[in-house]
Write a protein that binds this DNA or RNA. Structure first.
Lengths: 346, 346
DNA sequence: TTGAAAGCGCTAACAC
DNA sequence: GTGTTAGCGCTTTCAA
């Protein structure tokens, strides 16, 4: 069944059917009514492939994420999908596992499917791949790492704001030895968080000795291993901040195994504020980065470039703030770090 | 740039280019080499829409899940995607929130995009919707609830096996008052779990008094509320089984709030065995239902029907077992339920 | 306002 | 083994 059947059934031309479906205003209301009736009676669904082929617009956006299994991303996917449906767009989703090879295949598939734009929520991509995309005038949106090109937007996450709040919070609770469980070093958005931590510590005049920053790979297992390392130090940290919530969960779990009480013996702060953060035991203090807002920004960035008729400016920027969400995984240090006593030297 | 450009550049006909791309074996190796070279040099990507339009096969499978935010589903999505890529298929993913209206829109979009089959991981669908799909000879795979039609497969989850193990485990630890936090009552796969629980309890000769089965809606919040209700009973349960892991996390969290120790004062068992189950505190005992295996079965069910040339049998069935995974959230009852003492009546 | 017809990029049937 | 060509289902001129 195709557009011709509808035309026949409604006794109009296929052009009129097409116009009706596309809500072209010049169609005679009577004819339109006949067409809709026919569509309904025959249960006709237009063939999107054919429409795409002729119109050149697929109404599909690609969404590239590193790992659907990390609870931060389902939140994004869900929000992105919600908006997409609203605007009558479809999503082509891929998890790449931060693997360049899979990323490449994903992008290739997206080009083949003629997506109208791609939101890249991973750590950027190789120059050559980007060439392919940009060569095809494909609107792109990145988190932090997009190059300053027309049709390429960036969502700049203001890591510093939330991180500063977190360090401030810890410092005001007399924490001095604060460790940081970072993400994968090759992930730009992770190194940006590490940097923000170092800056915030410096601002407070707090030192970050060697070995107090250790990678947790943004996984539970990574967090586990990271804290194991941290706990083995002679000067064990009294607080640890994590580059994401999942690794914070790993840290808490390892602390539990070692008999270290959170928050009494150890404060921990996560990053992302995933839904579950509120429900782990104890409820996790975290630096929120709104998944809904992020998805919304990304979608609209793409949409703006798709709908733009004039040639677009280079490198549009959007901003997303972060903020500390206090829960129960932080507390004042129980015994302040023993400092060389200045009173009574004898 | 299209197939014609490649043909020109390689000095062959477009048919030869098409054949080369599709690995038709009769193409002269020399010509093929020229074609691949041209493809590479010009950076040509075939247009999938055009291919679909003429071949009638989109190489897209729809994947319908209730809620991407429930950590059980990302595991499925990931596994499904992995296999799909392997077979050169694409996925159209939708979360429906178990809402019939959204489900309807999702299915409509899938038909419009000419998907080759749909895996429906939710609680079934309205008769009429199914008609639409089946009318179009669309291969379908359901969990448990598919009707016995040709081109419709079912994956039968053997809930009873794991649930029986769980009840057995609890019973052997002297638990008698065992509660069940069920899923949404309108969700067939959830009622199947409840039923399995009731059966297993009956087999053990254990009673399930009124009010000991309460809905947790398969969400953390639902689990929270459910246990609040359970904890308020005069005869509080010594163990609670949950219809999924997420609600079990809610239960544990509420117990923590109420100062009830898991597992010493309360044993809890989840269902699904999500990745995180191993990492919550305490590590959650759960009934595993392999997400990878489920995705694999679903994909191959669809693939089998797509590739079938003869007319297919009605209602192919696949089976997936469940099994108890012991961790730290269960323990023997501390003080056995006080029974009317039979010795020394005076 | 409506219809006829060209053509989007490709596959497949058929002819050579 | 290779090329020519019809046509997949639709949108979009253009003419009426």
């Amino acid at each position: 069944m195709d557009i011709r059947d509808i035309a026949k059934h409604a006794k109009v031309s296929i052009a009129t059917v097409s116009r009706t479906i596309n809500h072209v205003s010049t169609v005679d209301p009577d004819l339109a009514k006949r067409v809709w009736k026919a569509i309904d009676e025959l249960g006709y669904y237009p063939n999107t492939q054919a429409r795409t082929l002729v119109s050149g617009k697929s109404r599909i956006f690609g969404l590239v994420i590193p790992d659907i299994t990390n609870p931060f991303f389902p939140g994004i996917v869900q929000a992105f999908e919600e908006i997409a449906i609203q605007y009558d767009y479809e999503i082509l989703l891929t998890s790449t596992g931060n693997d360049q090879h899979r990323m490449e295949k994903a992008i290739r598939r997206m080009i083949e499917r003629q997506v109208d734009g791609v939101a890249i929520m991973t750590f950027g991509m190789e120059e050559e791949l980007l060439e392919h995309l940009h060569f095809r005038k494909m609107p792109l949106v990145f988190i932090d790492v997009g190059p300053p090109l027309p049709l390429v937007s960036n969502i700049r996450i203001q890591y510093q704001i939330g991180v500063r709040q977190a360090v401030q919070h810890l410092a005001s609770h007399h924490h001095r030895r604060i460790a940081f469980v970072s993400g994968p070093p090759e992930l730009k958005s992770a190194t940006a968080r590490t940097l923000a931590f170092q800056n915030a510590m410096a601002e407070k005049g707090l030192e970050v000795p060697d070995g107090m920053i250790v990678s947790g790979h943004h996984t539970v297992e990574g967090g586990l291993a990271a804290f194991e390392q941290l706990a083995a130090r002679t000067e064990r940290p009294t607080a640890v901040m994590c580059s994401n919530d999942v690794s914070a969960i790993g840290v808490m779990r390892k602390a539990y195994e070692l008999g270290i009480q959170v928050p009494d013996d150890l404060s921990v702060i996560g990053f992302d504020d995933i839904h579950l953060a509120e429900f782990v035991i104890p409820p996790l203090t975290s630096i929120r980065m709104s998944q809904t807002e992020l998805a919304r920004l990304a979608f609209h960035a793409l949409l703006a470039d798709v709908e733009r008729t004039s040639l677009p400016p280079a490198g549009t920027e959007y901003f997303l703030t972060t903020e500390l969400v206090l829960r129960k995984s932080t507390a004042p240090v129980r015994k302040p770090a023993a400092e060389p006593s200045k009173t009574h030297p004898f």
